[in-house]
Design a protein around this nucleic acid. Structure first.
Length: 419
RNA sequence: GGAGGGGUAGUCAAGCGGUCCAAGACAACGGUUUGCUAAACCGUCGAGGGGUGCAUAGCUCCUCCGCGGGUUCGAAUCCCGCCCCCUCCGCCA
């Protein structure tokens, strides 16, 4: 959520910056409604001041046993006028809120302006594996080894739900446990949050109102299934005023993530690439505005640490304006390479949302004892998402003889060296 | 799901139609005193929004007592609906 004061002060400048993300953005309706809103507030507040003075006078007159009937009559007229103005306000304010809630965050100046394709590769780790034998797709590997069973999962839940079996299940659990512990050792507070959450929570993190169709919804209880722990962790301090010495706060959560993925899938998204349910270890930071970009860089490095430890080749890319999620000012993705398809896939997306989510969730901190509360900055990043990480391991670590080498640090917990 | 109790500022807590512009205490902060620490004393001390300011400074107005409605000239206080917490009962992995 942007501060409406920014729109008032510099509507052209703000609109120009937002158009870099989405050329279709037009803030003129918000500006017009807001102008009317301010007029109404002025009227209402003047009237209320008058009413309050009058009401006190009524109390005084009654105490003295005097007649207050003419004053009461004029006050009741004022009350009617207040009602009329407030009725209009009540109609206008939700419209402003809704329009404002749909505007994206302002992009950071360091973000390249442009479409998806304009993303910039910042750095990479390791080499593209050069496999001199016919490489298999992870689906094929999964079936051969009996560690992935999409067919039976489909009978249980439907298409595009994964089921890990045997060493596949062991490997998935080992990955989760390894990543979770890795970040805890780096100073993150471990959290296992609820996996369902209410609408308010998704509004704060900004999945709602825009992405209602992409989240599973339990009608009866009006709860949503977690699509990313970002949504949950962004609500951990809702409505709180933190003290300066509490910041920065680092959280790591493990959750399954559920996504409806309504729309079309391409052939290249078969298997574990795009599924309705996957496991993710999520990193989340609450920081001061001054430190948030330093913290973003650190966040990316911490996520990279996981892939380095697993020995997987990846690259780090800076997303351009038109590829940013609504709440993000700047996003850096980590992509792993899948030799089975000769393509890179995102396994981590690290964003600085600045105060966009904090404003919605009213998460603030007090810089000093006497100072006014300010909004914190929130950052999130996958650390990382498995399913895709699993696919990467299966495809990158295949050997000419058909075996799959399990990354060394996981061998003990999986209980095997090869699949 | 049922019955009862409760939700007031950072924390505790009073108030139950008009002097509430929400008491008081604790914590915090500033100061006085002080060999140091502590104590004592004095002062400051919630949030959001509007107006006026270069101002996140002052001044001023409005709103907020779990959330949303209603009654009233006037609601923390009365009425209705909902949410959350506690105790007990029922059901259940």
């Amino acid at each position: 959520m942007l501060d409406i004061k920014l729109l008032r002060e510099d509507p052209e400048g703000i609109e120009r910056r937002l158009k870099a993300r989405n050329p279709g953005i037009d803030i003129s309706e918000i500006i017009a409604l807001d102008r009317r809103r301010l007029e109404l507030i002025r009227e209402v507040e003047d009237l209320k001041a008058e009413r309050n003075r009058g009401s006190q006078e009524v109390g005084r007159l009654k105490k003295e046993g005097k007649d207050a009937s003419s004053l009461l009559k004029s006050l009741s007229e004022i009350a009617e006028r207040i009602d009329a103005y407030e009725a209009e306000l009540k109609e206008i304010e939700p419209r402003i809120d809704d329009l404002l809630a749909r505007l994206p965050n302002l992009p950071h100046p360091s973000v390249p302006v442009g479409k998806k394709e304009e993303k910039v590769v910042i750095r990479s780790f390791g080499e593209k594996p050069d496999l001199d034998f016919p490489v298999k797709h992870h689906l094929e590997i999964g079936e051969e080894k009996g560690i992935l069973d999409f067919r039976r999962a489909a009978a249980i839940a439907g298409a595009r739900f994964p089921m890990y079996v045997g060493l596949g299940a062991m490997l998935e659990m080992a990955l989760i446990q390894f990543m979770f512990t890795y970040h805890v050792k780096n100073g993150y507070t471990p959290v296992l949050p609820p996996f369902l959450a209410n609408a308010e929570s998704f509004y704060v993190s900004s999945q709602l109102p825009k992405f209602a169709d992409d989240i599973y919804h339990c009608e009866k209880d009006d709860l949503y299934l977690n699509p990313t722990a970002e949504s949950l962790l962004a609500n951990l301090h809702r409505g709180e005023i933190l003290t300066a010495d509490e910041l920065p706060k680092y959280y790591v959560a493990y959750t399954p993530c559920f996504r409806r993925e309504a729309g079309t899938y391409g052939e290249e998204e078969r298997g574990l690439i795009r599924v309705h349910q996957f496991n993710k270890v999520e990193l989340f930071k609450y920081t001061t505005p001054e430190s948030s970009y330093r913290e973003l860089d650190a966040l990316v490095e911490e996520a990279e640490g996981v892939l380095k430890a697993l020995g997987i080749h990846y690259r780090v890319v800076l997303l351009p304006t038109q590829d940013l999620a609504q709440q993000s000012s700047k996003t850096i993705d980590i992509e792993v390479y899948l030799p089975g398809q000769n393509r890179y896939y995102e396994v981590s997306s690290c964003s600085n949302c600045e105060e966009f989510q904090a404003r919605r969730g009213k998460v603030r901190y007090r810089p000093g004892p006497k100072e006014k509360p300010r909004y914190v900055h929130t950052l999130n990043g996958s650390g990382v998402a498995t399913s895709r990480l699993m696919a990467a391991i299966l495809e990158n670590n295949q050997l000419p003889d058909g075996r799959i080498r399990i990354p060394e640090i996981l061998q003990d917990s999986v209980g095997a060296e090869y699949l």
